[in-house]
Amino acid sequence: MDRTPHTPHTPHIVSDVMTQTVVSVGRDAPFKQIVMTMEQWKVSALPVLEGEGRVVGVVSEADLLPKEEFRDGDPSRMEQLRRPEELARVGAVAAGELMTAPAVCVHAGATLAEAARIMARRRVKRLPVTDAGGLLVGVVSRGDLLKVFLRPDEEIAREVRHEVVEPLFPGADRSVEVRVADGVVTFTGEIRDTALVPVAARMARSVEGVVDVGFDLSRPGVAGRHEPPVAGPLP
């Protein structure tokens, strides 16, 4: 039996998973240097910095492509009306003219869920990470945010037992057990109050590394009969 004292898990924050070695460019970086830097470091976007490291924008492959797209012809009138910002970059030659500003950034102390929401809403793959003073301290990617799903199943199970089973099913309801396989949590055993099932599902899903939650529970019935309140994954 594992008798190691349990320490409540603290949710990971961006600084736990970000890449601290960040490639960036200044406002005056020329077009060709930007392309060469992206190719050398195998990245699709670069933070643009000024001063001591304040992020003022981000230049991405999408910002550079209009120059090639219209290299052999002028944009149509319809394209001029629909894509004025992109077309303004056709004649740009430096990062300050090419970049998207203000930069979409995330604070180092933000949770991974917060960073994921920013990426989804702004449709970006990478975010510059800034400190309280707005200075660049790292970069976080979609892949970095997925690292929580590498947590061992037993570690996830211990946390679910501590954070969900112990507070929700004390005393007689402690017959509820937890299994975790490939990140999928399954609650098994007996439960008296079936109203706690959706509560347990929400709490378990908030544990980092949980892929899904399912139930294989029964409810004590009359004269030893058991009635299954729920089985399988909860919607």
Rank of each mutant, 00 (worst) to 15 (best):
R3D: 07
P5S: 03
T7Q: 11
T7D: 13
P11Y: 12
H12P: 01
I13C: 02
V14A: 03
D16M: 10
Q20N: 06
V23M: 11
V23I: 14
S24E: 03
V25N: 03
D28Y: 10
P30I: 12
F31W: 15
K32L: 08
V43Y: 13
S44Q: 05
S44N: 15
V48S: 09
V48N: 06
R54H: 09
S60H: 10
E61W: 05
A62D: 09
A62G: 10
L65W: 14
P66Y: 07
D72I: 01
D74K: 15
M78C: 00
E79L: 11
R82S: 03
R83S: 10
P84L: 06
E86R: 11
A88W: 01
R89I: 04
V90E: 05
A92I: 00
A94N: 11
A95I: 03
A95E: 07
E97R: 12
A101P: 00
C105M: 10
H107L: 08
G109D: 15
L112Y: 08
A113W: 06
A115W: 13
R117G: 00
M119S: 07
R121Y: 07
R122M: 10
R122G: 00
R126M: 01
R126Q: 09
V137K: 10
D144G: 01
L146W: 05
K147T: 14
E155W: 08
I156K: 07
I156N: 00
E159N: 04
E159C: 03
R161Q: 14
P167D: 07
G171C: 08
S175A: 07
E177Y: 01
E177F: 06
E177G: 15
R179F: 10
R179A: 13
V180Q: 14
D182W: 04
D182A: 15
G183S: 06
V185N: 06
V185E: 08
T186W: 00
F187E: 01
T188Y: 07
G189E: 00
I191P: 03
I191N: 02
D193I: 03
A195H: 12
V199Y: 07
A200M: 06
A200Y: 02
R205A: 15
R205I: 00
E208V: 02
G209S: 12
V210R: 05
V213W: 01
V213Q: 04
F215V: 11
L217E: 02
L217S: 03
P220Q: 04
G221P: 03
V222I: 13
V222W: 09
A223N: 12
P228V: 13
P229W: 11
P229Q: 11
P233W: 13
P235S: 13
